[in-house]
């Protein structure tokens, strides 16, 4: 009897001893690739005693496709602006009322009443930036602030251009080059766009999003579509790369943290959203991803080079970034047809 008691006590002690080691809860993040530094994950884990896991995707469309295919178990995701609206309309997001968060006051007022989520009922800012392209100035020394580089490239760049594997980034660039409207459903315009893209494809090396930096740094490509922060990281590895602000226009975007409906750890999701609104944390993220935070008060924590970097400081001559809202069903289907036609 006594022996049993001792053993029970011992086992009980073991349970108590081991419990602090296992985390309070979990948080499963579904995020863009290469977009969240480990130190920030560690910091969140430590502060809230939460075990974090993360999977990645390489486009808003991949995220939607995965979620649509019935993948579950993720608590938060980081969709771009228009995708937030689509996910809300599809009823795939949990309403979190960000204005009730402790750190809501830190949100940059410009980013509170956004078109895709007025008043921030579903989302909080993660990073915002632009989608342009970079050119290796050692390979081509001419004027780069024009979409001619992509669609009618000079001889030095032909066959050395990487495009993002993203239907909207590629098609919108084409529409701007042709001077046509975004979310275009005019068949004549789309035929022009289709011809432009299929013709320009001969000059393109590859379609690659998660390798967009690597392909430029390695020199396989001498020009390539890229997001500005990712581009800044490319320049850190190869100084001759220069980010272009095409005069025909370029996409502006904001990625946002959202809580996915049916996620197993909603409370931790909210904690994470609140955590990322803290200026110091937002700055840590910005120092890694190299875009711009949608949070005020990050300046004291930011790396110095970010303040003057060409990629995040629009020159006065550059057009205003073009935030493209989601297009209607008809346009989405037509775009998908052009995209499939281009890739095949």
């Amino acid at each position: 009897m006594k022996k049993t008691l001792t053993i029970s006590a011992f086992l009980l002690g073991l349970v108590f001893l081991t419990s602090p080691a296992s985390a309070e809860g979990k948080l499963n993040i579904y995020n863009w690739f290469d977009y969240l530094p480990q130190e920030l994950i560690d910091k969140f884990s430590a502060e809230h005693d939460v075990e974090v896991t993360m999977d990645t995707y390489d486009s808003n469309e991949s995220l939607l496709a995965k979620l649509k295919s019935g993948v579950t178990g993720y608590d938060v995701a980081v969709p771009g602006d228009y995708m937030v609206q689509i996910l809300i309309e599809e009823g795939m997001l949990e309403q979190v009322n960000a204005s009730e968060f402790e750190n809501f006051g830190n949100m940059d007022p410009d980013w509170v009443d956004v078109y895709f989520d007025p008043g921030r009922l579903y989302s909080v800012p993660y990073q915002w930036g632009t989608t342009g392209f970079m050119v290796d100035t050692e390979v081509y020394g001419g004027e780069i602030d024009t979409l001619e580089i992509i669609f009618n490239p000079p001889a030095e760049l032909q066959g050395k251009i990487n495009m993002l594997k993203d239907v909207n980034d590629v098609l919108n660039a084409g529409l701007r080059y042709l001077g046509l409207d975004r979310c275009n459903e005019n068949p004549e315009d789309l035929k022009k766009l289709n011809d432009l893209l299929t013709n320009a494809k001969q000059h393109w090396l590859s379609f690659n999003s998660d390798g967009a930096k690597e392909v430029l740094v390695s020199g396989d490509a001498a020009a390539g579509q890229i997001w500005n922060g990712f581009g800044m990281r490319a320049r850190a590895e190869k100084a001759s790369l220069k980010y272009a602000y095409p005069k025909e226009g370029f996409t502006g975007w904001m990625d946002n943290i959202v809580a996915l409906k049916g996620g197993p750890n909603l409370e931790n999701a909210k904690k994470f959203m609140n955590f990322m609104l803290d200026p110091e944390n937002a700055a840590m993220l910005t120092n890694f991803a190299r875009y711009t935070a949608g949070v005020s008060g990050t300046e004291p924590f930011l790396d110095d080079d970010l303040k003057t970097a060409h990629e995040t400081n629009l020159p006065a001559s550059a057009p205003t970034p073009d935030f493209v809202p989601p297009c209607n069903d008809k346009v989405v289907k037509l775009y998908d047809r052009i995209w499939t036609n281009l890739l095949k």
Binding site: E61, K68, K165, W204, N208, D336, T340, L343
Partner: peptide, 21 residues
Amino acid sequence: GGGKKLMIGNLIALQFQGSRN
């Protein structure tokens, strides 16, 4: 191949991702 020339596998995968068909 740089994702530029599709093979059957890529064509099928594309329909479930980018092309949503």
